[in-house]
Computed example of a mutant assay.
Amino acid sequence: MSAPTPFSFIEKANRLVIKIGSALLVSGEDGTLRTAWLEALAKDVLKLKARGCDVILVSSGAVAMGLEPLGFKGRPTRLEEAQAAASVGQIRLAQAYQTLFASENAVIGQILLTIHDLENRPSYLNARNTVEELLARGVVPVINENDTVATAELRFGDNDQLAARVAQMAGADTLILLSDIDGLYDSDPRSNSTARFLEVVESVDAGVEAMAGPPGKTTPGTGGMVTKLKAAKIALAGGCSMIIMNGHAPSPLARLEAGERATLFPASTDALTVRKQWIRSLMAPKGYIHIDAGAVKALEGGASLLPAGVTGVDGGFDRGDLVAFMGPDGHLVGQGLTSYSSEHASLMQGRKMQDAQAVLGHVGRSALIHRDDLVLF
């Protein structure tokens, strides 16, 4: 049996996150967009979508594309200057994506995130649900750090780690980091001609981390191999495999399919299993939801928890909190992360989801607790 290749992980993936660095999007430090390169990438992405794979792009480049219009000769060092460049560049970047994907009859959606958005539970759930809705409608989400408002203390610092967090949030199977190097070496190939290329890295331990040099400073980007290994640790912990490859030439995914080498970090489990294990490990639910026999049977069949099967709500909880659910015999059935507060769950008790507008005054989420956010005992 042949060893798995990086592209084999892409072929079997249901959901991919692709990170695009500034050095790939722009030429030099003048912020000139590499239009032909981005157009070729769009074709790559849409081939994956045609196979039934969800694709999320995490794109750098906002600051780099705002430098020339504001008269900067290099990346600014002051935070407010970088934020001003991002403000101008983000519009230019979004326009470029919109134009090139529209030429392929595809729709993109832009999402700007900060660390706060992924650390704060309600914001995290909003971001995740927005991504899910975009993907369900065939849209390609393009995500970037919100450089215009993020402070030094609330920055990811590079989009490698942002991409890993997005992959974790979205339950992606594989994360692809398009870089200016073809993967991980056991030492810096720029200074050591005998550096050995690593095709597969099973885990990121101290020995592997020692192989990375300092963050790169030679391109418009801010990352380096150090940040990519940090991203690998985040991705692998979330059940997401990761690939590092040289994305500088056009059609990187087509080149990967043709056998171009890359470094593969295979995950030992899948994202949903990791998520379920985490939910199962949580203790001290904020409240209890009592459900009827029909709801218990539906959950056992793999369904989400809907308010129609709810017979009672105890305790005070907010959206995103851990709640346990009890069967009609009073025994614990399972637990999960609720999409509704205890107040709204009580109001929706025994009703159908389509009643949310009339009962709550707004259209709610598709389930009281989504099947991906619950475990049964």
Score class of each variant (00 low, 15 high):
S2V: 12
S179C: 08
E133C: 09
I10D: 06
L67W: 02
T222P: 00
A284E: 15
G239M: 03
P6A: 11
P215V: 01
R255H: 13
V166M: 08
R261L: 15
A249Y: 10
T114G: 07
K217S: 12
A345I: 02
A345Y: 00
G287P: 06
P6Y: 03
K297F: 12
D147L: 03
Q161M: 09
G239Q: 09
G312K: 12
L135P: 00
R15G: 13
K43H: 12
A172N: 03
V204E: 03
L125A: 12
K230A: 08
A163P: 06
G294D: 11
S27P: 02
L332E: 15
T32N: 10
T311Y: 00
I244S: 08
G207N: 14
A356Y: 03
S251D: 08
E209V: 09
E29N: 13
T32W: 03
C240Y: 03
Q335H: 09
F9W: 08
L118E: 08
G334C: 09
P328H: 10
A232P: 02
H116V: 06
L79T: 13
I181Q: 06
D355K: 02
L118P: 11
A367S: 15
E145C: 07
D373F: 11
G216W: 02
E202A: 15
A271M: 04
E343M: 12
